[in-house]
Amino acid sequence: MNAFRLAGDITHLISILVLLLKIYATKSCSGISLKTQELYAVVFLARYLDLFTDFISVYNSVMKVVFILSSVAIVWCMRRHRAVKRSYDKELDTFRHYYLVGACFVFALLVHEKFTFQEVFWAFSIYLEAVAIIPQLVLLQRSGNVDNLTGQYVFFLGAYRALYILNWIYRYFTEAKFSRWIACISGLVQTALYADFFYYYFLSWKNNAKLNLPA
């Protein structure tokens, strides 16, 4: 474990806590894409299949459980909770995310480290995570203005993978046999997707203005 990875995991956890705060404090999920949340639940369920088979560390197992439970809880809340469900931007959140799931699964069948059930699902979860934010970014573009908590949520979510890239660079130079190409390249694509959001987020922060994304 290195500082970049720990910072990345904590940033990831913060993004989830910010989202939970927004939903529970405001009893609203306006501006949040249910499709992105569903994709994240699939990402964690597909990636942590080894939760019961490979024990890495208490930290690793606890964080896996937290990520799985929180992502499922957010989806459940946005689908079932009466008050929250009413505020869901159903007509704006129309990205066909099933195509993303299908494309990533096919790609994982083609490109993986080893052709085993667990490895294919791991690669699938890595590819899916890279594109999971797309429905959310599309929703933000359509709704134009971004409320603070949603903006912070997307910012931390993007920042965590950028920290992971630093972690991979660090591990590449410090560990003899470290090669995590699938995660590295996918992580670069993932962070690049946030690039324009980061740009407008920084501008709004610098000008102390409200975050408005160009339609």
């Binding site: 995991d9 990831h12 080894d50 890495i56 791991w122 046999k177 470290f178 995590r180």
Partner: peptide, 10 residues
């Protein structure tokens, strides 16, 4: 086979 680098990352 290359000994499996355990998926120690989240």
């Amino acid at each position: 086979a290359k000994d499996e680098v355990a998926k120690d990352e989240l």
